[in-house]
Design a protein around this nucleic acid. Structure first.
Length: 602
RNA sequence: GCGCCCGUAGCUCAGCUGGACAGAGCAGCGGUCUUCUAAACCGCAGGUCGGAGGUUCGAGUCCUCCCGGGCGUGCCA
C-alpha cells in the first residue's frame, strides 16, 4: 500500500474512527476515500456515511458527524467538513503535503516492493518468421513491455516470452520456395524473405471453391482447366512443404540449418524494430512454437490415455463447461494446432519456468481461444489453483474510416513504415520549432518524439478497446500526447541548464507550497505509487499515462504561474527547483515504465 | 442462431469498489510571449451518458429487455 498517497492515510484514519464510533456494528465498512471531483470540496472526500446510515438505520449526516467526532486527524488535515447528504471533505495541511513529498523524494520514488513477489511469464509480441512486423504487432509488443516493466518495478520476476510463429506448413512452403528459386540464404534479407513468404502462401492456397463453382455453374472448359491447374499447383506446393516439414521434424541437418537462417533473418529485423521501439525484447526471449514441437504428440496421447481428452469426429478435443465450442488438440488428419502448442507452452511455463502467473498480451479477438485454453489447462491438471492465468485482450487499431488500419491496397501496414512516417513528421515539427538544433540532434529528437508519440497513443487508453489511429492527432503534439509529456520534461531540463546550481544545492531545500499551483503539483506527484500499483493490478498502462499526463498539466500550470529562477526569494527558488527536480524524476520514471525515452531538449 | 465486447460533447477518449451540478484533449471562440522552450498557459461555449423499464437515499457505473456497431464461433494462426 503506497504510503505517500494521502488517500491511504485518510482511509486508515477514517477506518479507525468508524470502529471507534460504531464498533462491531459497522462491520468491515469501507472508508470510501476518493479524491474530490471539485476543488471547492477540498482535496479528498469520504463517502462512508451514506452506506453506514443504511446499515445502522440512522440519518447519514449524524453518522458523518460521529465519524468526524472520532477522527484523530489534526496532523493531516484541516477540520473536516460535512456537506450534502453526508460527505466528509478533507483539505490536507501543507505540512502534511510537504512531509509526504519528502517521503516520495527517494531513489525509488515511493514505490514499495511487493511482499508477495511472483514469477510471471509475459507472453508478448509474438512475431511470425518470414513476415514483416506490421501494425498488428505494435500493441502486443508495446503493452507487454510496459506491463513487464511495471511488474518488475514492483519486485516481481518477469520472464518475457516471444512466442514466435516459427513452425508449420507456411514456413516450410517459404523454405521450399526459396530452395526452388535457388536463393542463396546467406544473402537473404527481410524484403526477399517476406516476398517469398507472401508468394509461397498465396501459391499454396488451392481454390477449391472456384473449382466447385466451375462445375456448379458450368463456366466452360477453359476456366475449368485454369482452375484445375491452380489447384494442382497449390497442392504440389503443399506437398513439397509437408515433405520439408517432415525433414525438419526428423532433424535433417541442411533443412534445419536453412530454417534457422529464416529465423535469424527475421529476428535481426525484428531486433532493429525492438531497439527503435525501445522495448526490452531480445533473442533470449525467443520461445517459438518449435520449442514445443516434440511435446505435442506425447501430451495429447497422455491426455487421451488418462481419459482427460476424447475423440470426436476423428479429432481429439476437450469439452469445457458452459462453452459450446470444443477445445481441439489434434485434427482428424493427425495434425496439431496452435491450441496444442499453447497448452504445451503452459506446461513448460508452469513446470520448467516455475511461474505462478501467466499473462498473455494478445488480440481481443482471441478471447474465446484463451478462455478455452485456460479452462482446458485447469481441467486436465496442467495448472492448479496456485497459478493465475490472464489474457490481456487488446483492441484493434482502426483507420480514420473506422475499419482496421490498412494500406490503400488493403495490405497490412509495415511497422517500419509507420515508425518512419511518425519520425519524419516529428522531424518537420522539430525543424520548425527548434531550428537551432544540429542535424544530428534533430534526428535523435525526432526519433524520440515520433516513436514516443506512437507508443503513448497506443498505451494511453483502455487496452481492451479498439482505437482510431490518425497521424494528425497523435503527432499534433498537443494535449494528451507523448510529445506534451516530453515537453514538460524538456522544460525542466532547460531550467536546470540555465540555473547555476547543482542538485546538491536544493535536494534538502524546504518545500514551500504557498501557491495553488504548487499545491496542485504536489498532489499530482503523490499519486505516483498508486498509479503504478493500479497499472499492475488492472494490467492497464493507461492508468500510468493518466498519471503522467496529470503530472505534466500540473507542472505546465506551475511553470506558467510560479517563476523558478526568478522567484521572489532564494528560499522559494530552492523550493521550486526541488519541485522541478522531483517532477522531472517522476516523469522520467513513469515514461521509463511506459517504455518511452526522454530527451533533454526538443 | 449462439457467445463475447462496445455505444459518454462535433471528433478522439477518461470516469477507480454506485456517491455531490458527468471530466479531459482536439476542433470552435476570446485572451496571454522584451522575462526559466507559446509543442505552453488562462478563459468561454458545447452532453436528455444509445433507448425503455427495474434495484437503490443515490445509477454513466448494477439487473432485464430493446436498438445500433464490432468481433468470435469444431478441425487457420
Amino acid at each position: 500500500m503506497a504510503s505517500v498517497d494521502p488517500a491511504n492515510l485518510l482511509r486508515q484514519r477514517v477506518r479507525d474512527a468508524i470502529v471507534a464510533a460504531f464498533g462491531d456494528a459497522a462491520g468491515d465498512a469501507d472508508a470510501l476515500i476518493a479524491p474530490s471531483r471539485n476543488p471547492q470540496f477540498g482535496d479528498f472526500q469520504c463517502n462512508a456515511a451514506m452506506p453506514l446510515a443504511k446499515k445502522l438505520g440512522k440519518p447519514p449526516r449524524d453518522i458523518a458527524g460521529s465519524i468526524v467526532e472520532h477522527l484523530d486527524i489534526t496532523d493531516l488535515t484541516d477540520e473536516p467538513t460535512i456537506a450534502g447528504p453526508g460527505f466528509i471533505n478533507f483539505t490536507l495541511k501543507t505540512m502534511c503535503l510537504t512531509k509526504l513529498l519528502c517521503r516520495l523524494d527517494t531513489s525509488d520514488l515511493g514505490i514499495e516492493k511487493t511482499d508477495a513477489p511472483r514469477r510471471v511469464v509475459m507472453d508478448l509480441s509474438s512475431v511470425n518468421v518470414a513476415k514483416q512486423m506490421h501494425v498488428g504487432h505494435i500493441r502486443s509488443t508495446v503493452i507487454g513491455d510496459s506491463l513487464s516493466n511495471v511488474l518488475e518495478r514492483l519486485g516481481h520476476t518477469v520472464i518475457r516470452q516471444n512466442h514466435l510463429g516459427d513452425w508449420g506448413v507456411p514456413i516450410c512452403m517459404t523454405l521450399s520456395a526459396l530452395h526452388d528459386a535457388n536463393v542463396d540464404l546467406d544473402s537473404l534479407d527481410m524484403e526477399m524473405l517476406s516476398d517469398a513468404y507472401r508468394r509461397a502462401t498465396s501459391d499454396g492456397k488451392p481454390d477449391y471453391k472456384g473449382l466447385q463453382a466451375v462445375h456448379d455453374f458450368e463456366l466452360g472448359p477453359k476456366t475449368e482447366a485454369e482452375l484445375q491447374a491452380q489447384v494442382d499447383g497449390a497442392e504440389q506446393v503443399i506437398a513439397k512443404a509437408k515433405s520439408a516439414l517432415l525433414k525438419l521434424q526428423t532433424g535433417d541437418a541442411q533443412t534445419v540449418r536453412d530454417w534457422r537462417k529464416l529465423i535469424d533473418v527475421t529476428m535481426v529485423e525484428c531486433g532493429r524494430i525492438y531497439e527503435r521501439l525501445h522495448v526490452n525484447i531480445t533473442r533470449e526471449h525467443d520461445a517459438g512454437e518449435s520449442t514445443y514441437r516434440d511435446k505435442l504428440a506425447p501430451l495429447v496421447d497422455r491426455l487421451l490415455d488418462a481419459g482427460l481428452a476424447q475423440v470426436s469426429q476423428g479429432a481429439v478435443i476437450i469439452w469445457i463447461d458452459d462453452v459450446e465450442e470444443p477445445f481441439i488438440l489434434r485434427k482428424s488428419d493427425g495434425g496439431f494446432l496452435y491450441a496444442t502448442t499453447d497448452l504445451a507452452a503452459i506446461e513448460y511455463r508452469v513446470g520448467e519456468l516455475a511461474c505462478d502467473q501467466l499473462i498473455y498480451v494478445v488480440d481481443a479477438r482471441q478471447r474465446l481461444h484463451f478462455r478455452l485454453l485456460f479452462a482446458a489447462a485447469r481441467k486436465v491438471g496442467i495448472i492448479g489453483d496456485a497459478v493465475e492465468t490472464v489474457h490481456v485482450p487488446f483492441g484493434s487499431i482502426l483507420g480514420p474510416d473506422g475499419t482496421p488500419l490498412k494500406t490503400r491496397s488493403g495490405e497490412n501496414i509495415r511497422l517500419t513504415d509507420l515508425l518512419d512516417e511518425a519520425v519524419s513528421r516529428a522531424a518537420d515539427v522539430v525543424a520548425r520549432k527548434n531550428p537551432d538544433l544540429s542535424d544530428d540532434e534533430r534526428r535523435q529528437v525526432a526519433e524520440a518524439v515520433g516513436i514516443g508519440a506512437i507508443k503513448y497513443a497506443d498505451l494511453a487508453q483502455d487496452v481492451a478497446k479498439d482505437y482510431v489511429f490518425t497521424f494528425d492527432r497523435m503527432l499534433a503534439f498537443e494535449g494528451d500526447t507523448g510529445p506534451y509529456l516530453l515537453n514538460a520534461y524538456v522544460r525542466i531540463q532547460s531550467i536546470f541548464r540555465k540555473a547555476d546550481v547543482t542538485s546538491a544545492d536544493f535536494t534538502d531545500a524546504e518545500l514551500l507550497l504557498d501557491q495553488p499551483q504548487e499545491r496542485a503539483l504536489a498532489l499530482a506527484m503523490l499519486q505516483y505509487p498508486s498509479a503504478v500499483e493500479s497499472t499492475a493490478a488492472k494490467l492497464q498502462p493507461h492508468h500510468l499515462c493518466q498519471f503522467a499526463y496529470s503530472l505534466a498539466t500540473a507542472f505546465a500550470s506551475f511553470y506558467e504561474h510560479c517563476p523558478v529562477l526568478r522567484a521572489e526569494t532564494d528560499d522559494i527558488k530552492r523550493s521550486r527547483l526541488r519541485l522541478c527536480d522531483l517532477t522531472s524524476r517522476l516523469l522520467a520514471d513513469a515514461l521509463g515504465l511506459l517504455g518511452i525515452r526522454t530527451i533533454d531538449r526538443m
